[in-house]
Design a protein around this nucleic acid. Structure first.
Lengths: 92, 92, 92, 92
DNA sequence: TCCAATCTTAA
DNA sequence: TTAAGATTGGA
């Protein structure tokens, strides 16, 4: 960072502003989510229950992904793993 | 929840899916942020320091906003507050 | 903490030492776990696969617990929640 | 893993259950630690500060151990190292 | 050694 | 209750 105030500074500022912009968008989404819960609540759905359902669905999805990862590991362990990306398997 | 499987169920599902979609977008933004840090790091900027700077700037911004809120309060107190949102100021 | 060096100091030191002892035990357990993995690996089991299995089992257990929590919430939502602890339900 | 359901399976299960048991104990210790902090907090000590102190002490301990390691190295370098572990020093 | 994730705490 | 920070484990 010898170039204080020069190119390096401009570049750093650019990175920081990019992050800040993304964080703003993230905060906006968080606000949107809160709004959906509020709307649902106004319609008579308990946010607490909704959150529980969402959590459960996420867990189930994670389950599925773990199952697949495990399967792949097993396949790899017995020498049936996937070919390295971008390399065609030899056509015997 | 007397309406199991009926309208209420469809509506609940709709709310839940909206939340899940928003959470996915939020996760995507988090990934984007990580990417920016990674890119910056590859260019020679320490993510750790960058985070500190961002935090600092956020604090300063909060300060400013507090200042502005205070200013507005004072203005309102002396009868110079802003018009309520959505209402056009009288065109004398 | 007006009593610097006096009773309060002794008490604080006691708390801190209790935590430190517990953390030592925790570190010892972590070392034990690493050992088991090492031993298993020496016997021909892939730690990676083992970890995946353990993770999956944990997820499944979490699933079950979430299911139960959700059920309880639903029951509560329709006014069939559990009686307060320690109070016998009226025997009609 | 040709021995599905046989000896190898039993052995793998045993390893996994050992790890799970150890992880449970570890979780229990983590809970104990939380309890101590809670108790200390109820007595008026800030957990935040306590954590800082503990961290500091750990660092100092690491320092000391480094010092000792260095000392041992020096001693070894001048032929005054400790006897190898598990071997009784000759009783002259 | 660094990154990712989990967990915990502070707002 | 959510978001940030710290800690821990894995690659």
């Amino acid at each position: 960072m010898a170039d204080v105030g020069g190119i390096a500074g401009a570049q750093l500022r650019s990175y920081i502003e990019r992050v800040e912009r993304l964080e703003e968008e993230k905060a906006a989404l968080a606000a949107d989510i809160r709004e959906v819960f509020a709307e649902a609540k106004a319609t008579g759905f308990e946010p607490k229950v909704m959150r529980q359902i969402i959590k459960l669905r996420k867990l189930e999805q994670a389950d599925r992904q773990e199952q697949e990862a495990l399967l792949e590991l097993y396949l790899a362990a017995i020498g049936m793993g996937p070919e390295p990306e971008g390399i065609e398997p030899p056509v015997a």
